[in-house]
Computed example of a mutant assay.
Amino acid sequence: MTNPHHGFNYIELPSTSNAAMKKFYGTVFGWTFQDWGDTYVAIHGSAVEGGFDQASDRNPSADGPLVVIFSNDLDATKSAVLAAGGDVSVDTYSFPGGQRFHFKDPSGNELAVWTPA
Rank of each mutant, 00 (worst) to 15 (best):
K22R: 13
M21H: 02
D105A: 00
H44I: 04
G26N: 07
E12T: 07
S61T: 15
S61D: 07
H6A: 08
K22M: 14
M21G: 01
W114T: 03
T39N: 14
L74N: 05
R58E: 11
K78M: 11
D87W: 11
A84C: 02
V68E: 04
P4D: 13
D35S: 12
I43A: 12
H102Y: 12
A55R: 15
H44C: 04
A42Y: 08
T2V: 10
E49Y: 10
S17W: 15
G45L: 07
A112M: 05
S71Y: 07
V88C: 11
F103T: 04
E49I: 04
Q54N: 06
F103S: 05
Q99M: 09
F8E: 06
N9E: 14
G7L: 12
P65Y: 13
V81D: 04
K23T: 14
T39M: 11
H6L: 11
G86Y: 13
G7T: 12
E49N: 11
R100F: 10
D35V: 08
Q34S: 14
G45V: 09
S107E: 10
T115A: 14
H44R: 07
V81L: 08
V113S: 05
H5L: 12
T16G: 00
P14E: 09
F33S: 08
G37T: 09
W31L: 10
V81G: 03
S94N: 09
A55K: 15
K104I: 03
A112D: 04
N109M: 02
V41F: 10
F8S: 04
Y25P: 03
W36N: 02
T92L: 12
T2P: 08
W114K: 03
M21L: 09
N59F: 13
A42N: 11
H44M: 08
A62N: 08
H5V: 13
Y10A: 03
K78T: 03
S94A: 15
D105V: 01
S107Y: 13
I43L: 13
G97S: 13
S15A: 14
F103Q: 05
G50N: 02
Q34H: 05
I69P: 02
F24R: 05
L66I: 13
